[in-house]
Amino acid sequence: MITLEAAVFREAKVSCGPLTFALPAGVTAFVGEVADGTEAVLRGLGELGPRSGKVRLGNRALEPSDVAFVGQDAPLPEGLFARECVDLGAKVRKIAREDGAVLLERFGLGALGQRRVEKLTLGERRAIAMVDAITSQRRVIVLVDPLSHVAQEAAPAILRALRELRKTNVFVVTSVSSPGLAADYASTVVLMDRGRALAPTTTSRPLLLASQGPVQVRIVTSEPMNLLRELAREGLATHADAGHVSVTGASLSAVAKAVQHAIVHAGVPITAVIPDGPPLAHVRAAIAGDERAAYDAAYAARMQASTEGTRGGAALVAHAVPAPEAPSAFRSDGGGQA
């Protein structure tokens, strides 16, 4: 277990926490934008350490030597060929792994092996650093946005490798700005919201909301005024009607995130969420508490969206409804942008 004990992370002007929860082995995706604190958490885990509080790996403090980290930039040593970087990574860590050229070939990057680092694009450098980190045999692998801004030829192999790491005892921590991607490879999801973390949840019970463009959702609640106030804080257009609140947002994921915030942080009880427009059976199934049906419907919706070329609009929402059953080890309080 990686345990965060009132850990506060800070990077640039974004601070995050204090966070108190445990991350299981497998792949954990922190979902959110940079402003939500995802990168602050990942850089904190990967190289900076927490500003305050503790991060433990098992019974001891997490050490830099436990971690392989790839940030937004991948400053590999200039002057070396790409394959030499991978070989050097193995030598420095004193591990036995495939030859650099073979490893790069396996990840679809064979063509880069003979190119010097300074001649590579940022995406290519990041891809090489990802390959090195994923195969580093370190206990903890921290990857910022592993599938964006990487050489596209490497993305499928990186995705495959992440999926395989789900089943291992390695702790892989990633950040994703596009929530739909988290469901592709993560076993645990932590939804970040302006420096706070909503409860970690597993992707074995995902609610995948496939949607593009603005949406309107009706929310049945016994406390419409409280909900209105919370949603107004989120900057969403709202109005109350008899027995329900109507919300209009830029996307279903944005609306869902705001509603989750109202549920988790303000404790507003939600009876039902009824999306207008095209049928979203999985949302209704989830509201009814039938997670299996929700998953199946979400999968079908996602497949349809994928066929229509709108896969990027798919959003994974953790603990949308009903109110989350937070693990006893979990607590998230305070934090926010500095």
Partner: peptide
């Protein structure tokens, strides 16, 4: 710092 981070990325201690 930039030169150091290149080696750090490949697992070298700082």
């Amino acid at each position: 710092g930039h030169a150091v981070s290149g080696l750090r990325a490949l697992g070298a201690s700082r």
